[in-house]
Structures are given as C-alpha cells and as structure tokens.
Nucleic acid binder design. Structure first.
Lengths: 63, 63
DNA sequence: GATTTTTGTAAAATATACTTGACATTATTC
DNA sequence: GAATAATGTCAAGTATATTTTACAAAAATC
C-alpha cells in the first residue's frame, strides 16, 4: 500500500524526492520506495522524514 | 538513550519481554535491545509493538 | 534460601534495509 | 515540441536489523 500521506506532505513542502532524501541523509530511491509502499524503513529514518516535513510519526506512518 | 516509555507500557500490560516478543513475532533479544535503546528497529516492528501495547507511534517512539 | 522466571549481553549467522549507478518514462518549463 | 527536472525501477553491492544459541545476573515466587 502506497504512502500517500507522505507524498502529500512532501508536496506540501514543495520538495522533490531527491531534496527530501538529502534532508534525511538517504538516497532518492529509498524515499521513492517508501512512498511506493513496498518497503519497511527504520524508525530513525521515519523520524528524520517527519522532522523534515514538520509532521509526527502518527501523522505519516500510523494506520 | 533507553526507551523507558516502552518499558513502562509493557509493564502496564504485565507482559515479559519474551511475551511481547512473541506477540510481535520477533525474538526476546530484539525487544530487549529496543528497550535498551542502542537500536534502530523497523517501522513495521514499532507498529506491531504499539498494537500489542495499545499505544500509538507517537506515544512510544516520538521524541 | 532454593527454584524459577526474567533480563542483560555476546558472538556468529541470516535476512533485509539502503546505496550506487544506470536507464526509461512521465511531468515541467522554455 | 524540445529541454530539463522529477519519478519509476532494476541489479549488484554494502550496512545493519534480527535470529539463534548460550551463559550469567537479577528479580520474583515458593
């Protein structure tokens, strides 16, 4: 299942996958895979993504 | 940094590390390491832990 | 206080998150 | 509509999350 909330939050900050990846210290492919959904990222990466997008874990990753 | 909120939530459910591990489908050492804090679990495991303890991601893993 | 349960911890092996590089496709912008 | 930026995706490699086995220490139970 795709993570559309993440995609929307990133769009809300006007960031490309590449820019978000740089902010989080990971590769663009990793961000792409997380948005695509067939992926199980680490909590530290999720937290980094949330901070970059001014969101919380519940807002982006809770079901 | 230790995850004392996790430890407290587990105690609140009267579960041993081993019991929580079984509920989450991981080994006892994994739960121990997460509580100890020198660890970076995957988001799926964090979600499984939260569900087992009736907590949300923000309650147990947000800073 | 002996027994059992729970927890801390460590080493070696396995599974998988993440990277790098590369190319194709789709959207933007001029 | 050509040029550029953004995204999807794949294969091979590296880093690290997680398992297994095992033993010792601490806590709980009798």
């Amino acid at each position: 299942m795709k993570n559309l909330r993440l995609k929307a939050a990133r769009a809300g900050k006007d960031l490309s996958q590449d820019q978000l990846a740089t902010l989080c210290g990971v590769s663009r492919q990793t961000i792409s895979a997380i948005e695509k959904g067939d992926y199980n990222p680490t909590i530290n990466l999720c937290i980094a993504i949330c901070k970059a997008l001014d969101k919380t874990l519940d807002e982006l990753f809770w079901e």
